[in-house]
Amino acid sequence: MSGLLHGLLYGLPIITVVLTVTALGLWFERKFAARIQSRKGPTMVGPAGILQPLADVVKMLQKEQLTPASADRVLFELAPILCGAFAVATAAVVPFSPTVVAADLDIGVLYVLAVNALVLIPVWMGGWSSNNKFALIGAMRAVAQSVSYSVPMVLSALVPVILAGSMSLSDIVRYQAEHHWFALWPTIPGLPAFVLFFLSSLAEANRIPFDIPEAESELIAGITTEYTGMKFGLFYMAEYIHTVIASAVASVLFLGGWDGPFYPGLHWMVLKTLLLFASIYWVRWSLLRFRSDQLMTLCWKWLVPASLLLVMAAALFVKVGGGH
């Protein structure tokens, strides 16, 4: 029962913070993108446009909720809710500091990967139930992309697991705090695995350059074509939450999580997460979108074999280096 209480006590604030960061992320992305492209971004709502996300939400809540007549109604309504829920669920095991973690599972890494894999289903459900060809094509692309990219993602997440000898995210951070951050040492499986994990989680979150499921120039809005108002908002939000959590997980697995000098752990963790978060937008507004086949070629011909090699290298390092 104490586990439940602990989960509630820490889970609620963590969800609140994650949602707040998500809202601010929306604002940040617009400002950041605008600066990259020599524009100003939101300026009217509040100081420097900081209240823009609030205005967006109010706008979305006011919009009419439309359901296409030929849609599969139940699935259509269910998809955005599940999508948001699964996206938030990943936050449960992320250790933000030695004490701030909602549920310190022994199989934390596996949990994150498993719930990540689940997000795909509501995304696909939404695309299919809309009964719209653009939504359906978007859904097909999302499924193909997600299935492919979860392979290198799982394999590269295995590297820190092997190096630290544990699947618990807290243990992995503790190991890194005692030894080295995995992105720095051992450099050979560590750094490339970090890059691979980051790339694959970009692809899983449908971020540019991997956002072909909703390529607006060819698919209108992909899976969200038929969604209006807050239902669209939930999909949109889930994407941002996914990005925040992916950054947090990447910094836990490879950048030492809460480990850092002078400041308390929580500060370091938040700083690392936000830096990765910002770099995702940097990539997003600097690069172009891949084509479908290029995406698959990149994944199956390069990332998968590379991640297999990295796993072997990690095992070799542990074996030769004396193990844990």
Binding site: L110, L113, A114, V115, A117, L118, L120, I121, W124, V143, S146, V147, S150, V154
Partner: peptide
């Protein structure tokens, strides 16, 4: 979850 719900179902 990872293999059956994530993988097999997707297939």
């Amino acid at each position: 979850l990872l293999l059956y719900v994530g993988g097999v179902m997707t297939l």
